[in-house]
Simulated scan of single mutants.
Amino acid sequence: MKVLILDTGCANFSSVKFAIRRLGYTPIISNEYSDIVSSKRIIFPGVGTPFSAMDVLKKKKIVDLIKNYSNPILGICLGMQLFCKYSEESKSVKNLNIIKYSITCLNNNLPLPHIGWNKVFSCKKNVLFKNILEGSRFYFLHKYILFLNKYSILKTKYGCKFTAALQKNNFFGVQFHPEKSGTVGLHLLKNFLEI
């Protein structure tokens, strides 16, 4: 199965690539049209800013291709946030607008960024969380959030409750970094790849 890690020009792909390899797959890193079309799974990695990532997608002319992708796609951290309308981090940038909600700054008088391990809990049953214990800890590193909404499948709390994972059709997103979350993160990635 062809697994593609989407090259946004601003992410550190090594940890995602090694995690996927540990699961027995050989991922490619690309943003070429032909590679995207022929892939069976896409992982949209999560480092950078909305401005820089969307700029790459626009220059490569793959925005509509990503929006219309029909196989499972997983957005990690920023990758998940780009599925939304826009982010307070780059207010002038229109994101992919697949999910009609916006990303806001985590503003609750706690230290930012939110960094480290945090428990997640189900909002609804979902294949992404199959055979993962309720309250499992995942590794977070971010300061922008998506509040809970009808697409939220996992939630967490850092001062306030917010979306830890979401799904809309074939678009899955996680605010945390499964590739840095040890065994439980690998299990979540395995669940995604086996959808």
Rank of each mutant, 00 (worst) to 15 (best):
G48D: 08
S15H: 00
P27W: 02
I153T: 09
F44P: 02
K40Y: 04
K61W: 00
A164K: 00
D55I: 08
K161P: 07
S102V: 09
E134Y: 12
C10G: 05
N126K: 05
I20T: 03
Y139Q: 09
F172Y: 15
I5V: 15
L6P: 01
L112S: 05
G173A: 11
E32C: 14
Y69I: 10
N118M: 10
L133C: 10
N31L: 11
C105S: 12
K91C: 12
L146P: 02
E88K: 09
K2P: 11
M54Q: 02
E88G: 15
K150V: 14
Q167R: 13
E32N: 14
V63Y: 08
I195H: 00
F172R: 01
K58Q: 09
S122W: 03
D7L: 11
L193S: 01
V16L: 05
F138N: 03
K100E: 15
I29P: 01
F147L: 15
G173T: 06
F51W: 01
F121L: 01
N118I: 09
W117L: 12
G173S: 09
K59C: 11
K168D: 02
G48A: 14
N191C: 10
K161G: 13
S102I: 08
D35P: 02
K61G: 04
M1A: 13
S39H: 02
E179L: 08
P178C: 14
T104A: 04
K60V: 12
P27R: 01
P27C: 11
L193D: 00
S38A: 15
I20M: 01
F121K: 00
G79T: 13
L146M: 13
P178Q: 07
P111V: 14
A11L: 10
L74C: 04
S181M: 10
A164I: 06
G46P: 04
P113N: 05
L6C: 07
L65G: 10
N109L: 07
L57T: 01
S52F: 07
S181V: 14
E32V: 12
G24R: 01
K125M: 14
F129H: 04
F83V: 12
G24H: 03
A164V: 05
T104N: 04
I43F: 03
Q175D: 04
G46Y: 09
G182W: 03
I62L: 06
E88P: 04
L96Y: 05
K190D: 08
F121N: 02
S136I: 11
S102N: 12
T8S: 11
N109T: 04
G116F: 11
V93N: 02
F13Y: 15
Y69K: 04
H177V: 12
T104C: 05
G48K: 04
K161T: 11
I20D: 00
F83M: 15
